[in-house]
Amino acid sequence: MVRLITHNLLACHVKNCTSNNFPLAFKDLGDTSLPAEQPDMIDDEFLQKLHHVLLEIHVEEGSMVCPNCNHVYPISNGIPNMLLAEHEIG
């Protein structure tokens, strides 16, 4: 259920992890249909790909890793587990 457009809103909320805590990196997400740079011309083909990536990709199983503190948020059954351990609560 984690659509990439929602993933775009998520940041790490571990204590003292305030900088460079976004975006949470996915492990093994193999979709490279989008170019790395923003293209100059926005045509229909590009928009369709963008729509597919943002709204139609649902991550069911996997994990997200904070690039700063390396906290791993596991995703199971399409629901990311955002719970923290006691020492990580800010």
């Binding site: 259920m1 809103l9 629901i79 587990n81 955002m82 609560i89």
Partner: peptide, 26 residues
């Protein structure tokens, strides 16, 4: 409860989160 919500096939994205720990939303 979230599993039940999944079975109902609601449209929204779901998160397992303790609200007392704070949100990780931008």
């Amino acid at each position: 409860m979230l599993e039940v919500a999944l079975e109902r096939e609601v449209e929204g994205d779901l998160f397992l989160q303790d609200i007392g720990q704070g949100f990780g939303f931008r």
